[in-house]
Design a protein around this nucleic acid. Structure first.
Lengths: 125, 125
DNA sequence: ATTACTTTTGCAACCAAGTTGCATTAAGTA
DNA sequence: TACTTAATGCAACTTGGTTGCAAAAGTAAT
């Protein structure tokens, strides 16, 4: 497990997550930062941030990867599990701070869950 | 909206879904049927079956597309919404017949949801 | 059956997201 | 300053899925 060095690229990405309550997709980041860093670098930094409990990732309705800031997570474990919402009109995704009850499933061990609610956001209604 | 013709390829796919309670991924189908039909054909038939309410599709934890038989759906609407379970060890996915309560979210219109529970299946425990 | 019409299929080429290998560069440390 | 190791850029690659188009196969009427 490599140590995370505070490189310019890492700072740049951290700044984006700090100023952003919504989730951000890898594709958006690659486009946003295409002048500043390579897409490989972006993917690799995101992976490190995730391993360190700083961000979490999830898949959207189209199978694209999104990232958002974690709250209360660490390298040891991700405890900040919550549903995400995606607007089927504009594609925007955000984290929802509601609690979803995951039922017990017989004969299976549930470790975590991905809940994606799909609909229309406020500005697309 | 084209009529679905009962071609050999369609029959083959329908037979697979009939004999299969679990979900099947597009990749699995392509591999399974690689001697019998083209992958383009598989994707197109799956799309038609979905439009007709015969199967439903969803994304797994890695962003791959999975399909499973619908119950009580039609071309008009998909009412068979339920969570799915994926084993993080063997990758198998199945449909769960439990009801998950989706909370009201202020200022948003929720149209449907994708719930994926991730853990270990019976044979991988 | 034959014809005419429309859907379906195969193929090849393509696209986009994400990954890998490797040489180079930049952090952290003594 | 020099050393060690992590981080980066680049190009090439992998993979899941899509598109355009000509050829083949369903379907229904004659």
């Amino acid at each position: 497990m490599g140590v995370i060095r505070k490189t310019k690229s890492v700072e740049t990405l951290l700044a984006i997550f700090e100023n952003n309550k919504d989730a951000v997709s890898a594709v958006q980041l690659i486009d946003l930062l295409k002048e500043k860093m390579n897409k490989t670098t972006i993917y690799r930094i995101l992976e490190r941030l995730q391993n360190d409990g700083i961000v979490h990732s999830f898949m959207d309705k189209d199978g694209l990867k999104w990232y958002a800031t974690c709250h209360g997570c660490s390298a040891k474990q991700h405890i900040d599990i919550h549903p995400h919402f995606q607007c089927q009109n504009c594609g925007k995704v955000d984290c929802l701070s509601v609690d979803i009850k995951i039922p017990m499933i017989p004969n299976r061990q549930i470790n975590f869950s991905q809940v994606l609610l799909i609909g229309k956001c406020e500005s697309c209604l």
